[in-house]
Simulated scan of single mutants.
Amino acid sequence: MADDAKKEPEPAFLNTVEAAAWLRLTKNTLEKMRVQGTGPLYRKHGRYVRYHIEDLVDYSQANKRRSTSDAD
């Protein structure tokens, strides 16, 4: 049996630390972006902030650039 068959599936929801690591940002940067409304979509599960992996992918896709002169 291959090792791949034993791996746990990736969680669909990530906490702030995990989402920041996935985006290669610091936790503080992601928190600041959340306050400013400039970051990826997030969800509140009770008092906990969670990021769905698809929302992180969508955020990354929406921020593709070809040049530093591309409009923000």
Rank of each mutant, 00 (worst) to 15 (best):
M33W: 13
L14Q: 01
R24C: 10
A21S: 10
S69V: 09
E31G: 03
G39S: 04
E54T: 14
L30K: 00
S60K: 02
D4Y: 06
D4L: 11
E10L: 14
K32V: 06
E54V: 12
M1Y: 07
D3M: 12
V35H: 11
D4C: 13
K7F: 12
V17H: 11
T38G: 05
K6N: 12
T38E: 08
A19G: 01
V57E: 14
Y51W: 04
D4S: 13
P11A: 15
A12T: 05
K7D: 12
Y51H: 03
H52W: 06
R34H: 13
P11I: 06
L41R: 13
F13R: 03
L25W: 06
H52D: 08
N63P: 00
V17Q: 07
T38L: 10
T68V: 11
M33S: 10
N28L: 04
D72H: 14
R43Q: 07
R66I: 12
E10W: 09
D55T: 08
E31D: 07
K7I: 11
A20P: 07
E31I: 08
K6G: 06
K64I: 03
D72L: 07
D58S: 09
D72I: 14
F13P: 00
L23Q: 05
I53T: 14
E54L: 14
L41W: 07
E54A: 15
T68P: 14
K64G: 00
A20I: 10
R24I: 07
R65V: 07
D55V: 01
S67H: 05
V35A: 09
A21L: 06
Q61W: 13
D70T: 05
K64T: 02
F13Y: 03
H45R: 06
S69F: 15
A19V: 10
A5Q: 15
S69R: 13
N28C: 03
A12P: 00
T16V: 14
R66P: 02
S60F: 10
D3W: 09
A62M: 01
D3E: 15
D3P: 07
K44S: 11
L41N: 04
R65C: 04
K44R: 06
P40R: 01
